[in-house]
Amino acid sequence: MTVHYLPVRRPPTAGPQRRLSREEFCRRSGVHPELLRRFVALGLVQAVRDPGGELRFPPGQLADVARIERLRRGLGLNYAAIGLVCELLDRIQELERQLRERSS
């Protein structure tokens, strides 16, 4: 069995960041708008509302959607379980980072 390591969420960067519209995010990620809405509702993808009430997405979320889709296809998990797996993967990354800092 081949193990594929998944990318982890990037920490927020300092300063303002360009955010993508829902349409642009869907086009770039290949995700249907209704599925993206579901990801937001489940907390798998973070979005903010602009002054006009439209959802905007940080470009870094594109990597998160790709990871979600890999977990769905590769492991056959439902989206609720994927949320838990992503949290655990992020926590593992954070613990590994702390370990590296302590050993330096």
Rank of each mutant, 00 (worst) to 15 (best):
Q61D: 04
G15P: 05
V85F: 04
C86W: 00
A63H: 06
P16Y: 15
E69H: 10
L77F: 11
R70L: 10
V48K: 07
E101A: 04
R97M: 06
N78G: 15
G83R: 00
G76W: 02
E54A: 10
S21M: 09
C26I: 04
E69G: 10
V40I: 12
L71R: 00
R70D: 07
A63P: 04
Y79C: 07
P51L: 12
G83K: 00
A47L: 06
S21A: 06
M1P: 11
L99R: 10
P59R: 04
V3H: 02
A80P: 00
R18D: 12
A63T: 12
R67F: 12
L99P: 00
I82C: 04
C26L: 10
L6K: 00
D64F: 08
R100H: 15
T13Q: 15
V3P: 01
E24N: 13
R19Q: 15
R9D: 03
C86I: 03
N78A: 11
V45L: 06
P58I: 08
R27A: 11
G83L: 05
P16K: 11
P33N: 02
E69L: 07
F57E: 02
G53A: 09
V8G: 06
A80V: 13
E101W: 09
L36F: 04
R19K: 09
Q61P: 03
L62T: 01
S29L: 02
G53D: 01
R27I: 08
I68D: 00
A14V: 10
P33Y: 04
S29F: 04
P51K: 04
A41S: 11
G83N: 01
G74N: 01
V8L: 11
R97G: 09
Y5T: 07
R73H: 08
L89D: 02
C26H: 03
L75F: 14
L88V: 15
A47F: 10
L77S: 03
I82P: 00
A41G: 13
E94Q: 10
S104Y: 14
G30P: 02
A80W: 03
G52M: 14
Y79H: 06
G76I: 02
E24H: 08
L55K: 12
S104G: 08
D64S: 07
P58D: 09
P58G: 13
Q98D: 12
P7D: 02
G76T: 01
T2E: 07
D64E: 14
L44T: 01
C86Y: 00
P11D: 03
L88E: 03
R72G: 05
A47K: 01
R56P: 13
V48L: 08
R9K: 08
Y79G: 12
V3C: 04
H4S: 13
Q98Y: 14
P12W: 06
L20S: 05
Q98F: 09
R102K: 14
R10M: 14
D64G: 13
V65Y: 01
G30K: 02
G52S: 13
S21V: 14
L44K: 00
L20T: 08
V85L: 03
R27C: 06
E34S: 12
A47M: 07
Q93E: 04
Q61A: 06
L55G: 06
L77G: 04
E69A: 10
R100E: 14
L36R: 03
R67Q: 14
F25L: 11
E101M: 08
Y5M: 06
V31K: 01
R19D: 15
L6Y: 00
R22F: 13
A80R: 04
P51T: 03
E87D: 15
